[in-house]
């Protein structure tokens, strides 16, 4: 059973990343926890995070399907006051990555989801995931290097 308080912000961040709409992201975050708590088909394998993120992803996909790709009402905020140049260059570098690559970066390095949970979430082997993340990081470094 994951600590709801601990994971609320992470799931919310993930939903916001997928939807770019704060209110909908929050609604889906709460829906994710409610679905998780009332779901009786989940077998406790000691990896509830993978399941939690899967519920969140499915809810976001449903929401996106319903919206039929309307223009995104909210952009990811650029809050950096000091070091604005770095923030802008990172944003530009991130925009060159695919959605999946950005999602992986978010989950692994911002939400700090363990590899074991990510393997469950993406249904792939630990080795394949590790290699993919390594390639994304290399790509990101190259993009950032080119900008300097």
């Amino acid at each position: 059973m994951p600590d709801i308080q601990e994971h609320y912000d992470k799931i919310y961040r993930y939903c916001f990343f997928k939807l770019h709409h704060a209110q909908t992201a929050e609604d889906l975050t709460q829906e994710t926890f409610l679905r998780f708590l009332e779901c009786d088909s989940y077998q406790d394998t000691g990896r509830p995070l993978a399941f939690l993120y899967t519920v969140a992803r499915n809810l976001c996909m449903d929401e996106l399907r319903k919206k039929k790709w309307e223009p995104l009402p909210e952009e990811l905020p650029l809050r950096q006051q000091e070091g604005l140049d770095e923030a802008i260059s990172l944003q530009m570098a991130m925009e060159k990555l695919s959605d999946r690559e950005r999602e992986l970066i978010l989950l692994r390095y911002v939400n700090e989801v363990a590899y074991a949970d990510l393997c469950g979430f993406y249904a792939c082997s630990r080795f394949a995931l590790y290699r993919e993340i390594k390639q994304i990081l290399k790509k990101l470094k190259n993009e950032l290097g080119e900008m300097r």
Partner: peptide, 29 residues
């Protein structure tokens, strides 16, 4: 990953503050 880049990534993915978090968590207790 370097700490500075990690911080920048956190800022990049930072969503607006959730408005209903406290009420939701209170209801879940």
């Amino acid at each position: 990953m370097k700490r500075a880049i990690k911080q920048r990534l956190e800022q990049y993915f930072e969503p607006p503050k959730p408005s209903g978090k406290r009420a939701f968590l209170r209801g879940m207790e």
